[in-house]
Amino acid sequence: MAVAGLKGKRQRVKEAAGALSMSKGGNMQKLGELALQKGERVPVELLALTYGSLVRQVIADYESIEEVNKQLDLMGYNIGVRLADDFFAKSGVSDCRSFQDSAEIVAKVGFKMYLNVQASVDLWNADNTAYSILFDENPLAEFTELPEEYAQLSFSNLVCGVIRGALEMLLLVVKCEFVRSTLQGNEMNEIRISLVEMLRESAPEDDED
């Protein structure tokens, strides 16, 4: 499912980002665009309202905001481990071998394909084990304003869980969290992804399951 786009501002952002991107990134962008067009779409309003009521329910079910963040991440994780296959079946990306590759693929293809969001990769750390995904519009929070008592809520934390789950299927264990969010008054959304470890191919971790 992808989100039907909002025109105008997003369009301009896309063109600007497209012009700046290098050839490899440009390729990824094309893949994302194609996959978006092929996939089924749901109206952005439906997604935003459904997601909002989901978050509301989780808040009603759990006492602390910290726990709510954790639950959203967990839900996302369970989506992510399944979505990884969906992604490879439909995106045209055939493999994703290294943590460095994963950055471009998640930001340029994944975000475009599933959320119709133009995202960019930046802020690599010195030893290439952490990066940030930056994007300015977040369809999940289209109509959301955070009340003061929920200031600590990471509203779209589900997305972090999805990324964590999907990368784990590729044997990359990552830590993933929102560090900036437009809901909290920042100019941009920033998701920080840092590599924890790479699992070995030959020893399947879930043999016992």
Binding site: R82, L83, D85, D86, A89, K90
Partner: peptide, 11 residues
């Protein structure tokens, strides 16, 4: 078959 696996089974 792989695409249908992601749709029918994983979802």
């Amino acid at each position: 078959a792989y695409i249908s696996y992601t749709d029918y089974v994983l979802k």
